[in-house]
Design a protein around this nucleic acid. Structure first.
Length: 141
DNA sequence: GCCAACGTTGGC
DNA sequence: GCCAACGTTGGC
């Protein structure tokens, strides 16, 4: 059954606003302010314990670490309309080496990666193969 | 800073 | 219910 397998994810944030170090300092962060249907649906599908790449957008343009879903979808406290949801995440570990967007674009195994195909999607799913490939890239040299 | 891509809004 | 105008995101 394919529903048995854990899902992997990637979420973006501008380090100016909320970067990896901010999450580490907080120990647990609320991922809020997502107002996009596709991104929101991805967040609704997240289960506690699933792993999420933390990507720095605008500045950095690289995956810097891995976080873990610590609380599944609940109403976004920053959203007055009540339409949007948030999740909670905890930092798991920093990658040995960050994996840049440039490097991912150059890797043919990652050509289907959601953030490459659709750069504006801020919360995306990552396949097991893609996840393993990115991890391997973070360990290279 | 610019602008392409994409989503949302609102006039008709 | 279409679509032009507008706003936002994020790579470059």
């Amino acid at each position: 059954m394919k529903s048995m397998s854990a899902h992997y994810w990637l979420m973006k944030s501008e380090p100016d606003e909320y970067g990896w170090d901010d999450l580490v300092a907080e120990k647990e962060g609320i991922w809020d302010g997502v107002k996009n249907a596709q991104a929101s649906n991805n967040m609704k599908a997240m289960k506690t314990g699933e792993q999420v790449f933390f990507y720095h957008s605008r500045q950095g343009l690289e995956i810097v670490g891995i976080m873990v879903v610590s609380e599944e979808a609940f109403p976004d406290p920053t959203d007055e309309t009540g339409r949007w949801i948030a999740v909670k995440v905890k930092p798991e570990r920093k990658l040995d080496n960050p994996v840049s967007l440039k490097a991912m674009k150059q890797n043919p195994k990652l050509s289907e990666l959601a953030i490459i195909r659709q750069s504006r999607l801020s919360v995306a799913s990552v396949t097991e193969d893609q996840w393993q490939e990115i991890l391997a890239m973070s360990q290279a040299e």
